[in-house]
């Protein structure tokens, strides 16, 4: 039986991830870019995974991915603020503020209603963005090159810098998530999933715990979105469309709830698979994805054990 509250080995996993990030630096540029976007998106999947620990499936995590991306995009392209020292904190802050406000409402909901309501708010943003002509509607808009704490790398060195930035922030995000899971608020997430009523009778508020996990996930996802925007130099409303959120759920599900680095690594695996699958069978990618998802659900019930056996006391 896997201990649910033991994260002692996770520092090791984060170290392994750090090593992979360094190795990635020397890989061919297409592969390195793949790692870079996968890491940024993986941070969002990590946010979904944290909520899954509490038994909650967010089907609208793209909302914060998009908020982070657009915060960076708007500041850089419209307000002329192009330094990452301001852009990333702005992405995190924007996601946090929206997360705190929505969290007040969402922390009352569980199960399918949580999934539906997170989906609804993400689609509200989508509905707004596709009609916002000044933001490029469905096409979104491009983001100018950014500077790093005042330093402006030349054209050739830009990919190196954005890769390094992504690596550092994602590793920090994983460490942050780890610290959170080791804290009281994080350690009790499993208890929220398993038996909320018992938990309140022990003297704590499950609703506050859900509120906190929603906000933490929002910040991680906002950072992921900001990094993704800087990496790809582009944002569009697709970031908050439900299929994007569905992909985050898919990765979190695939990765399981065991380790904070799992969603990041799983995302890379997914992107790698996609690259080859799109070459071989361009119209069968979703078919492969869906089949894999069914396989995980049917054949690896251990990964889903917690959700399946919940509240049957």
């Amino acid at each position: 039986m896997m201990p649910t509250l033991d994260f002692r080995r996770d520092h090791l996993f984060v170290a392994v991830l750090a090593l992979l990030v360094i190795v990635g630096f020397f890989l061919p540029s297409w592969m390195r870019f793949l790692i870079q976007t996968a890491m940024a998106s993986g941070l969002v999947a990590l946010g979904v995974m944290l909520q899954m620990r509490a038994g909650l499936v967010s089907f609208g995590q793209g909302l914060f991915f998009c908020i982070g991306g657009y915060a960076v995009g708007l500041l850089a392209a419209k307000a002329g603020i192009t330094d990452v020292a301001l852009l990333l904190p702005a992405a995190a802050l924007a996601a946090l503020v929206i997360g705190l406000v929505l969290g007040l409402l969402l922390s009352r909901y569980r199960e399918i209603f949580y999934a539906m309501l997170t989906l609804a708010v993400s689609m509200i943003l989508y509905g707004l963005l596709v009609k916002a002509a000044s933001l490029g509607s469905t096409d979104g808009f491009n983001i100018p090159a950014v500077s790093y704490f005042g330093f402006v790398p030349d054209q050739a060195a830009r990919p190196d810098w954005s890769y390094a930035l992504t690596g550092v922030v994602v590793l920090a995000g994983c460490l942050g998530a780890l610290a959170y899971l080791r804290s009281g608020a994080g350690a009790m997430l499993d208890a929220v999933r398993e038996n909320e009523i018992r938990l309140s009778y022990l003297g704590t508020s499950p609703r506050v715990l859900v509120f906190v996990v929603y906000a933490v996930a929002a910040v991680l996802s906002g950072l992921g979105g900001g990094l993704w925007a800087i990496s790809s130099g582009h944002v569009d409303p697709e970031m908050t469309y439900w299929t994007t959120s569905g992909q985050f759920v898919f990765v979190a599900l695939l990765a399981g709830r065991g380790s904070v680095v799992a969603p990041v690594m799983a995302y890379f695996l997914l992107e790698l698979l996609r690259t080859y699958a799109l070459d071989i069978a361009p119209n069968a990618w979703q078919l492969i994805l869906g089949s894999a998802m069914l396989a995980v659900i049917v054949l690896l019930p251990r990964g889903l054990w917690s959700l399946v056996a919940r509240a049957r006391t």
Binding site: P3, T4, A179, S183, S205
Partner: peptide, 28 residues
């Protein structure tokens, strides 16, 4: 009880829940 957790973990959750009535950032 929290069925998926060990007996010790159940007791730890009881301790944490009772003492950190509000979520805290310290290692639990």
């Amino acid at each position: 009880v929290f069925a998926e957790m060990t007996v010790l973990e159940n007791m730890l959750i009881a301790l944490i829940a009772g003492q950190d009535g509000r979520p805290s950032a310290r290692a639990a």
